[in-house]
Computed example of a mutant assay.
Amino acid sequence: MRITLVTVGKIKERYLKDAIAEYSKRLGKYCKLEIIEVADEKTPENASATVEDMIRQKEGERILKYIKEDAYVVALAIDGQMLSSEKLAEKIKLLGIQGTSHIAFIIGGSIGLSQEVLSRAHYQLSFSKMTFPHQLMRVILLEQVYRSYRIITGEPYHK
């Protein structure tokens, strides 16, 4: 299985880079992982809804350039469906059984994803109704994908 993360913005913090590197290494046993970073747009303080829409649009165009036709696209969205770790593992396993060989997870920038990206997604996944920094979501997502593969293979994982 190929797993692609398409994310907005660069990671600057060393501790997040280290965590991403660790989970990327662990995932190498289970899948081929690719992380693609697209440039983020600066969001001015007190930006209007129109300006925020323009920013999401620009970031969305960058994201969509990296979405392959064969990819099953999962957009991380606060209004998406929440799953337990076991249900996410079940979803990944079922996609593989059904012949999907490529899953692309999309993490938007600080103001979310454009409607075009959300429309391209086959599934919208929410980790919480809370807001998390999009940089931290990379670590959380990678950990959950790693946990999913541990569950799928029947290996122990922390409950």
Score class of each variant (00 low, 15 high):
Leu27Gln: 11
Gly108Lys: 00
Lys10Leu: 03
Ile97Asp: 07
Thr7Met: 06
Glu69Tyr: 14
Asp53Ser: 13
Thr43Met: 10
Gly108Arg: 04
Asn46Glu: 13
Ala49Cys: 14
Lys29Asn: 14
Ala71Met: 09
Leu16Asn: 09
Gln144Gly: 11
Glu45Asn: 13
Val145Trp: 00
Leu76Pro: 09
Glu22His: 13
Arg147Gln: 04
Glu41Arg: 07
Ala75Leu: 06
Gln144Thr: 07
Ile140Asn: 00
Thr153Glu: 06
Asp18Arg: 13
Glu41Thr: 09
Gly112Leu: 09
Ile36Arg: 12
Tyr157Phe: 13
Gly154Gln: 07
His134Ile: 12
Leu83Cys: 10
Glu13Leu: 10
Glu59Phe: 00
Gly60Met: 01
Gly112Ser: 07
Leu95Trp: 09
Gly112Ala: 06
Thr7Ser: 15
Arg138Ala: 01
Lys68Cys: 05
Ile106His: 07
Arg147Leu: 09
Pro133Ala: 11
Lys42Arg: 15
Lys65Val: 12
Leu94Ala: 11
Ala39Tyr: 03
Ile63Pro: 02
Arg2Asp: 14
Pro44Tyr: 12
Ser84Ala: 08
Arg2Lys: 15
Met1Asp: 08
Lys87Glu: 11
Ile63Phe: 09
Ser114Gln: 07
Gly80Ala: 05
Ala47Thr: 12
Thr100Lys: 08
Lys129Gln: 15
Arg26Tyr: 04
Gly99Gln: 14
Gly112Gln: 11
Val51Trp: 04
Ile151Ser: 06
Arg62Asp: 11
Lys12Ala: 13
Asp40Glu: 15
Lys10Arg: 13
Lys87Ser: 11
Glu155Met: 04
Ser24Pro: 08
Thr50Tyr: 06
Gly99Phe: 12
Gly9Asp: 15
Gly28Pro: 10
His158Ile: 02
Asp40Ile: 01
Lys58Ser: 03
Arg150His: 03
Thr50Cys: 04
Tyr30Asp: 03
Leu5Ile: 15
Ser114Met: 05
Ile11Arg: 05
Leu125Asp: 01
Arg138Gly: 04
Ile111Ala: 14
Gly109Ala: 03
Gln144Val: 12
Tyr23Val: 12
Thr4Phe: 07
Ile103Asp: 00
Leu88Val: 10
Lys17Met: 05
Val117Thr: 14
Arg138Lys: 03
Leu5Val: 14
Lys93Gly: 03
Ala21Asn: 15
Glu155Ile: 08
Cys31Asn: 13
Ile20Asp: 02
Ala77Pro: 02
Pro156Leu: 00
Leu33Asn: 10
Ala47Glu: 15
Ser101His: 15
His134Met: 04
Gln81Asn: 14
Tyr15Asn: 07
Arg56Met: 12
Ser119Glu: 14
Ser48Lys: 04
Val139Gly: 05
Ala77Tyr: 10
Ile92Tyr: 03
Ala75Met: 05
Gln81Glu: 15
Val6Ser: 00
Ser128Lys: 03
Leu94Ser: 01
Glu90Phe: 01
Gly80Cys: 10
Lys65Tyr: 13
Phe132Ser: 06
Leu64Thr: 03
Lys17Gly: 07
Ala39Asp: 14
Tyr72Ser: 07
Ile35Phe: 09
Ser85His: 06
Tyr146Thr: 02
Glu13Gln: 12
Lys10Gln: 13
